[in-house]
């Protein structure tokens, strides 16, 4: 077999090197639309807010006012009552998309809120039981300058720790409010 000329040898190695760059670039270009769509839907940029501090997010200024753990007898379960408020700045932005709320723990587990207020909350914290859910605000409640007090309840194992309330408005993604 004839010896390769120096120029041919260089072209051979250049082609191989180009393949390493071009192949991933082609895959990336082909999937770019799907990747950006996935990030828009699933991307999370946590905005941590410590207890009592306020944070502007999705047309309001949010603040956690209480996170109470109410044990359910000796069942090994507890009801977590999360109370928070929003001082409304832009009602249109606030009402533009639904409110997705979850309780998280130190291990990254996520609990969805209960549809109905737990009996224990009615017994021990009746004033909180009357507060609306984040997803249940009416246009009458959402007025510029008004402060709306809300509450959500969750049922969790009694031994959870590092609890925080995750609040997402899809129109504010990838921002994800984490109230501690």
């Amino acid at each position: 077999m004839p010896e390769l000329q120096a120029g041919e040898r260089r072209r051979y190695w250049l082609s191989l090197a180009a393949l390493v760059v071009v192949l991933p670039a082609a895959v990336l270009a082909h999937t770019w639309g799907s990747l950006t769509q996935w990030w828009a839907n699933n991307g999370r940029d946590p905005i941590n807010v410590e207890r009592g501090a306020a944070q502007r997010y999705a047309g309001a200024e949010w603040r956690m006012t209480g996170l109470s753990v109410l044990p359910i007898g000796s069942t090994g379960r507890s009801v977590v009552l999360a109370e928070f408020e929003a001082r409304i700045e832009d009602p249109a932005v606030l009402m533009e998309s639904p409110c997705v709320v979850a309780l998280t723990d130190a291990g990254g587990r996520r609990w969805q809120p209960r549809f109905t207020v737990h009996r224990i909350v009615r017994e021990q914290r009746p004033e909180a039981a009357e507060k609306p859910n984040c997803g249940g605000l009416t246009p009458e409640q959402v007025q510029a300058g008004a402060t709306v007090k809300m509450a959500e309840t969750f049922v969790v194992p009694a031994d959870v720790d590092g609890l925080a309330l995750s609040l997402i408005k899809p129109n504010a993604l990838p921002g994800n409010l984490v109230l501690r």
Partner: peptide, 9 residues
């Protein structure tokens, strides 16, 4: 169909 399963419960 009516059950909701929670982490750790």
């Amino acid at each position: 169909q009516t059950a909701n399963f929670e982490p750790g419960l």
